[in-house]
């Protein structure tokens, strides 16, 4: 059992934190698109978090998370040198990666970090990689340089227009598709709304689109079924069957309803 000591921690944008953890076992095995389950302290929930980066040699794993509920708030309070109560992974299936041709990777919120290693590995596999990084405003973007280093191109969108195109990444993607730009595959990591909108934009163009689902989970090993979703009429568990699914085959209504199951409790639990 690793001690899960925090090696480095930083607020990289308001409410978005990067946390590098000493977890050699996970660092050795992690692949792009996999996740860990993090429990900041013994009272907290089991929180699934996408692995953003890792260093197999040093044995470090980096996660990027949005401070949103009581448990992620607790995680944000931990500092360099603290031990995380529980840090389990790697979990889930990795992204399918091969030489597709031209790939668009869409990242928003924690998903900007979530697409970084996929971009790197896709590039190493001979793809032309175009990253779409989005936020409400320029100051909420992060890892711009890191993405620029591994991708052929990074296209920014901000809702307020402070950097790149004004609007969302899916708006920009739609413009690009409409103007005849060709993508062989599209992958999106971020909030449910963004991924849903990406799916809607790409569907008429028939581009295979993979989204990295982020439902409520508990064990993360297929034991409880909290993370279930419906894909082509069949119930799937995001933790073991995913988290990556064909965006055009997902029943998004069920996803959206299930996301809202604990909204009230989230508020209560923050009032310690």
């Amino acid at each position: 059992m690793d001690k899960n000591e925090i090696i480095e921690k930083e607020q990289i944008a308001p409410n978005i934190h990067s946390c590098t953890v000493d977890a050699p076992g996970i660092a050795k095995k992690a692949l792009p698109g996999q996740f860990v389950i993090v429990i900041p302290d013994e009272y907290s929930e089991r929180v699934p978090v996408t692995i953003a980066d890792w260093d197999a040699e040093k044995g470090y794993v980096t996660i990027i998370f949005l401070e949103i509920g009581a448990s992620t708030q607790r995680l944000a309070e931990l500092n360099t040198g603290d031990d995380i109560y529980s840090f389990t992974g790697p979990l889930g299936k990795p992204f399918e990666i091969e030489n597709f041709g031209t790939v668009a990777l869409v990242g928003g919120c924690y998903g900007i970090g979530g697409i970084y290693r996929a971009a790197k590995t896709l590039k190493e596999n001979g793809n032309k990689v175009i990253c779409f990084s989005e936020a409400r405003s320029k100051f909420l973007l992060y890892w711009n340089k890191k993405l620029e280093e591994v991708a052929d191109e990074v296209r920014y969108s901000t809702v307020d227009g402070s950097l790149g195109s004004k609007g969302h990444s899916f708006d920009l993607l739609e413009d690009n598709l409409k103007s005849g730009e060709h993508f062989d595959r599209i992958m999106a990591v971020g909030c449910t709304f963004m991924m849903y909108r990406v799916a809607r934009v790409t569907k008429p163009f028939g581009v295979k689109t993979i989204v990295s689902m982020n439902p409520v989970m508990i064990d993360g090993t297929g034991m409880c079924g909290a993370c279930r979703l419906v894909v082509e009429g069949e119930t799937k568990f995001a933790c073991v069957d995913g988290p990556h699914f064909d965006a055009h085959k997902i029943d998004w209504n069920i996803v959206s309803d299930r996301r809202k199951a604990y909204l009230e409790e989230e508020i209560i639990s923050k009032e310690r």
Binding site: Y43, S44, E45, R46, G69, A70, S71, R74, I218, D219, M223, C224, Y262, E265, E266, I268, S269, E271, R272
Partner: peptide, 17 residues
Amino acid sequence: TRANLMKAYLFPKYKTP
């Protein structure tokens, strides 16, 4: 699992609802 392992019966002291 919510009730036992995560102690949801002690919510909100334990954060799992």
